[in-house]
């Protein structure tokens, strides 16, 4: 599926070349080539251990690859940091940290503030606006451990919103949230996409891929398939990504509700 590589692909929001990551001798990601055009809502889908989170973390420079290159809007990530927003997995932090929702959101502005400068009124206002966008304005001064899982996820989203990035990477933003929050989150992501931003989401629920996303990547250590959801989401690719588990799918019409035939994947 990889395109012939011109030098930097400035017309692509994300361009990944020959990316390989391994923690020990066994590769976690093997020779990944990936192209995501700007202005799409893209899902990264694959079974447990497929390397979905690792892919995002490697793109963001959090994990050092054994080989490969990453370009964001034609330039290496280090040069594009200011236009990249990140929503880590909710479980990656200790929510008993002594701080408030609005303080967490303000952290999204620390990078732009730079060293030694303290967040002031302007930053506080931006953080409040972001909290309003995710419907959390009434919880601004709540201690973060007193928030529900869905509310904590919204706080993380608000923290990414204040970054005012052009491209967002989100690690399972809809894992373990209630239906209302999931609806609110997908609406928010669609709004970002409609503003011309690129949103790349690790997603675990196959049943909603086609309705939520317009671009997708099937990943299982290697790139299985990538492209427009309508072109890529089919039985062949599902089987290639998920292996035997997907055998059940043959008995169900694929377009109906393939997610019900599969083990729902849990967040690691």
């Amino acid at each position: 599926m990889s395109m012939p590589n011109s030098s930097h692909e400035p017309n692509l929001a994300l361009h990944v070349e020959d990316l390989t990551v391994s923690y020990s001798s066994k590769p976690v990601l093997w020779d990944i080539d990936l192209d995501i055009p700007p202005g799409v809502l893209a899902a990264i889908v694959g079974p447990n251990g497929a390397g979905k989170s690792t892919l995002i973390k490697t793109v963001l420079g959090l994990i050092k690859p054994a080989a490969g290159h990453v370009y964001i809007y034609g330039k290496p990530y280090e040069k594009q940091r200011s236009i990249v927003g990140y929503v880590p997995q909710r479980s990656s932090v200790d929510w008993d940290f002594p701080t408030t929702a609005i303080d967490v959101v303000t952290m999204g502005l620390y990078g732009r503030l730079g060293w030694l400068k303290r967040p002031g009124k302007a930053e506080k206002q931006q953080a409040e606006e972001a909290l309003t966008q995710v419907g959390m304005q009434d919880f601004a001064h709540r201690q973060i451990s007193q928030l529900s899982g869905g509310q904590q996820q919204r706080v993380f989203l608000a923290r990414a919103l204040v970054q005012q990035a052009d491209i967002y990477f989100m690690d399972e933003p809809m894992a373990g949230v209630d239906a209302t929050t999931e609806r609110a989150i997908i609406n928010l992501l669609r709004n970002l996409r409609n503003q011309g931003k690129t949103v790349i989401v690790v997603h675990h629920d196959l049943s909603t891929v086609t309705s939520y996303f317009d671009w997708m990547l099937f990943l299982n250590v290697r790139t299985i398939a990538q492209g427009h959801v309508n072109d890529v989401y089919n039985a062949e690719n599902l089987r290639a990504a998920y292996g035997d588990k997907v055998a059940l799918l043959n008995q169900n019409p694929l377009s109906q509700n393939p997610g019900s035939a599969l083990e729902p994947e849990s967040t690691p």
Partner: peptide, 22 residues
């Protein structure tokens, strides 16, 4: 005192702090 906000974000969410460029 000088690096208050940097220490705070590193303590709370070190990976996010890294993506901010710290």
């Amino acid at each position: 005192l000088l690096f208050w906000k940097e220490f705070k974000v590193v303590t709370f969410d070190i990976q996010f702090a890294a993506t901010l460029g710290f």
